[in-house]
Computed example of a mutant assay.
Amino acid sequence: MFYSICSQIVNAVFAALVLLPQFYVMASPKSSRYCRQPLLSNLSASIALSFIATGFSVVFTLIDSVPQSLWASYHVFGILTCGQGLCTAILTLTAAACAKTTPELYYMSLILTIASIFSTGFFMVRGGLWLTNRKHVTEASRNNEQ
Rank of each mutant, 00 (worst) to 15 (best):
A99P: 01
N11D: 09
I47P: 01
S141V: 15
R134F: 15
A45I: 07
T120V: 13
A72V: 13
C35I: 11
S69K: 07
R33T: 07
R134D: 13
Y106G: 01
Y107K: 02
F122P: 00
L40G: 00
R36I: 00
A96W: 10
L110E: 01
R33A: 13
S69D: 05
N42P: 02
L19M: 15
I63D: 04
T81Q: 14
N133V: 08
M26L: 14
A72Y: 10
F118A: 13
E145S: 15
F23G: 02
T101I: 07
T94V: 08
V125E: 09
A45V: 09
W71I: 12
L20N: 05
T113M: 13
F14I: 08
L43I: 05
G55I: 05
L86P: 00
Q22N: 00
L40M: 04
S116D: 10
H75R: 07
F77M: 03
L80Q: 03
M124R: 05
F123Y: 15
S116K: 03
Y106H: 03
I114M: 14
F56A: 06
I63Y: 04
V66N: 08
L86S: 06
L91I: 06
N133E: 12
N11V: 08
S65K: 10
V76S: 07
M108E: 03
I117C: 10
T88I: 08
S32I: 03
L17A: 14
C82V: 15
E145H: 14
I114D: 11
T132G: 10
A45C: 09
S28N: 15
T54Y: 12
H75E: 06
F77E: 02
I79L: 15
M26P: 00
L80W: 07
D64P: 04
T132L: 13
T120I: 14
C35P: 06
V25F: 02
L49P: 00
S31I: 05
Y34H: 12
I79V: 15
A97M: 00
A97S: 11
I90L: 12
Q68P: 06
S41I: 00
A97R: 09
V18Y: 09
I63E: 06
V25P: 01
T138S: 13
F122R: 07
F77S: 02
S73T: 14
S46A: 14
R33Y: 11
S116E: 04
L62W: 08
M108H: 00
I117T: 11
P67M: 12
R36Y: 06
L110Y: 02
T132C: 08
M124P: 00
Q37L: 02
T81Y: 12
I47Y: 03
M108D: 00
K30F: 04
C82A: 15
C87V: 11
F51S: 03
R33V: 01
G83I: 09
V25E: 01
L70D: 07
I52A: 13
F77W: 05
A16L: 15
V13Y: 11
H75I: 09
K100T: 11
V13T: 11
T94H: 09
S46H: 11
I90N: 04
S44Y: 08
